[in-house]
């Protein structure tokens, strides 16, 4: 009990003094996850909207697949990305394995289905309301998709926040493709796992507290966004 209390005290100290090692890990985590979510937004939002609007053979199967992929196990994603990026893999020439870029790629694979599946639902609901009006105004599919993504921006922001939550909290994928290399690919979750196994609870707890704070921040932001949407903006 005393050890735990001491660990908490030390961890608060690390946070309050902005410990260099801790700050470095937090910034890298944010950089990796934000880049992954950004890339997932660029691909996932139009993909989800296209599946919602366009009628093509197998559309339902694609929608089901996107929803199913929301629950991809991070370690499996890590393994697949590892195989792709490893020296013998098809993308081995890029030399990305054990770099932050590989971690971004793995999180991108994890987050894109979440963003796309949630975007599909949001856009489909909006399309039910807007279809006749947009068609009457003369909007083609491309214009309609752009309009629906803009008009659904608050709900879609929630989808992106959900994606960010998933990316920042996962450990399996980034551990496998990043290798948890100090000062290179160490992020909050991999550092927590390592420091806990080493018995250095203070740093692990400090990072854990920041991770929880981030999670609360993300959920708080989701509430604010929802309120904004309800206010009719």
């Amino acid at each position: 009990m005393h050890d735990i209390a001491a660990a908490f005290a030390t961890s608060f100290g690390l946070i309050l003094t902005l410990d260099q090692g801790l700050v470095e890990i937090v910034l890298r985590s944010l950089q990796v996850s934000l880049l992954a979510v950004g890339a997932a937004a660029i691909v996932g939002l139009p993909l989800g909207a296209a599946v919602a609007l366009l009628r093509f053979p197998g559309r339902r199967a694609v929608a089901i697949l996107l929803s199913s992929l929301m629950g991809l196990p991070p370690v499996v994603v890590g393994l697949i990305v590892y195989l792709l990026l490893s020296r013998a893999g098809p993308l081995g020439v890029l030399g990305l394995l054990f770099t932050p870029s590989a971690m971004v790629a793995a999180q991108f694979v994890l987050v894109t289905p979440i963003v796309a599946a949630l975007a599909r639902q949001v856009v489909e609901d909006l399309w039910a309301e807007y279809e006749e009006q947009l068609r009457s105004l003369g909007a083609g599919p491309r214009r309609a998709i752009a309009t629906l993504l803009w008009d659904g921006r608050f709900s879609l922001m929630t989808a992106l926040l959900a994606g960010f939550g998933r990316a920042s909290a996962e450990v399996g994928a980034v551990m496998i493709v990043g290798g948890n290399i100090d000062h290179v690919t160490r992020v909050m979750t991999t550092a927590i796992a390592l420091e806990t196994s080493k018995g250095d609870l203070a740093l692990a707890l400090g990072l854990g507290l920041i991770l929880i704070a981030l999670s609360l921040l993300v959920n708080g932001a989701a509430f604010v966004v929802r309120d904004l949407a309800r206010s009719g903006a």
Partner: peptide, 23 residues
């Protein structure tokens, strides 16, 4: 066409008209 229940885009009144003109 104008519908029984007006469908307004989530933007200002002026931007709604501007949107139609842009199309």
């Amino acid at each position: 066409m104008v519908f029984q229940r007006p469908v307004m885009l989530r933007r200002s009144a002026a931007a709604n008209i501007d949107y139609a003109l842009r199309l």
